[in-house]
């Protein structure tokens, strides 16, 4: 039995009847209306509880929760710079370890969490993240992926999907919009041979919270890739975040799975996948795409989903997606 399976063998999940009442991230922060990212962060914090140290990268979730002298955080929280959340988490974890060893403190159960957006994780911060995963610190890294630099005003990142319009991938006669395919960071995390990797979205809150809890329980590094709709940047309605996140799963754009000790497990099988057009429809960032563009993207999405299914052992042992 692997490290993660061993740690998770007695895991009991959350359900809607026994939701923790604790809110380490309090309301009254300054997120945009309909922010899917802060919803995901709130759910993650409910799952993590209060015995945590949060290490934040620069980004929306940093700015909106910590405009001095106010803070939305009821737990220890540290922000240093844009690119080094994983390095900071490494340092905090090592410091606690050293202090516990020397008897200065006796707090063996603290959970250390680094988090950042897609830019802070997949672009400028990937070096620090890779280093921390390789060193094997006992921490959780959460990437809240809203598929562009929203804090500075919607510039593309390596998490921006092919074809999406942003201010630095503007669609027009000479440009389709984002011209490269989305970076597969969960696969990069898996390649570090860490015990636990998972993808999640706030459209499936219990699934998200269970995965966060598992990531915290597993000794060693755990990586969570959390799909986080941004109505401001995606140009969808502020009441559509959760719906768009759900459509992303139902149209196979964002498959939900876990990788436990290197073994892929599908969390949710999409039995009757919706066409990608249904996912694109509410979002103006995709409005300029032609039928041919959409067909090309659909082909890629299908192939990527097949790939995930294959890694999960073909049949995809996950639960059936219900309407």
């Amino acid at each position: 039995m692997g490290i993660a399976s061993e740690a998770l063998k007695n895991f009991k999940g959350f359900n809607l009847k026994n939701m923790p009442e604790v809110e380490p991230l309090s309301p009254g922060h300054r997120a945009c209306q309909g922010c899917g990212e802060v919803l995901a962060l709130r759910l993650a914090m409910k799952a993590l509880g209060e015995n945590v140290v949060m290490c934040s990268a620069t980004g929306c979730m940093e700015i909106i929760t910590s405009p001095f002298p106010q803070t939305a955080w009821k737990v220890p929280w540290i922000h240093v710079a844009f690119e080094n959340a994983a390095a900071v988490a490494s340092g905090v974890e090592s410091a606690y370890k050293a202090m516990n060893r020397k008897g200065i403190i006796n707090q063996p159960d603290v959970v250390f969490v680094g988090y950042g957006g897609d830019g802070a994780t997949m672009d400028i911060g990937i070096q620090a993240l890779s280093g921390a995963l390789e060193r094997g610190h006992n921490f959780v890294y959460m990437c809240f992926d809203n598929e562009a630099y929203m804090n500075t005003g919607i510039q593309r990142s390596s998490g921006t999907p092919f074809g999406a319009g942003t201010t630095t991938s503007p669609p027009g006669k000479k440009s389709i919009g984002q011209s490269t395919w989305k970076k597969n960071l969960p696969a990069i995390a898996v390649a570090h041979n860490i015990p636990y990797v998972a993808t999640a979205t706030p459209a499936y809150p219990v699934d998200l919270m269970n995965k966060v809890k598992k990531a915290a329980m597993v000794p060693g590094p755990a990586y969570l890739h959390i799909y986080s709709p941004c109505p401001t940047g995606w140009r969808c309605g502020i009441d559509e975040s959760v719906q768009v996140a759900r459509l992303a799963v139902q149209s196979k754009v964002f498959p939900l799975y876990e990788v436990i000790d290197g073994q892929y497990v599908l969390s949710r099988k999409v039995a009757k996948p919706k066409p990608i057009t249904e996912y694109f429809k509410p979002q103006r960032r995709f409005r300029h795409l032609t039928e041919a563009d959409v067909a090309k993207i659909q082909e890629r999405i299908d192939a990527e989903y097949e790939d995930i299914l294959k890694k999960c052992g073909g049949d995809g042992k996950g639960k059936e997606e219900k309407e």
């Binding site: 400028i124 500075t152 005003g153 593309r156 201010t167 630095t168 991938s169 440009s175």
Partner: peptide, 29 residues
């Protein structure tokens, strides 16, 4: 790479360079 208050230069170059057969790349840092 996006950074306030220089982002607008990058954004403007991103929309203008393709018209003059130029190249805009947003890098990872």
């Amino acid at each position: 790479y996006p950074i306030t208050p220089a982002t607008e230069i990058a954004e403007h170059m991103a929309s203008r360079l393709p018209h003059v057969c130029g190249t805009f790349i947003q890098m990872e840092d």
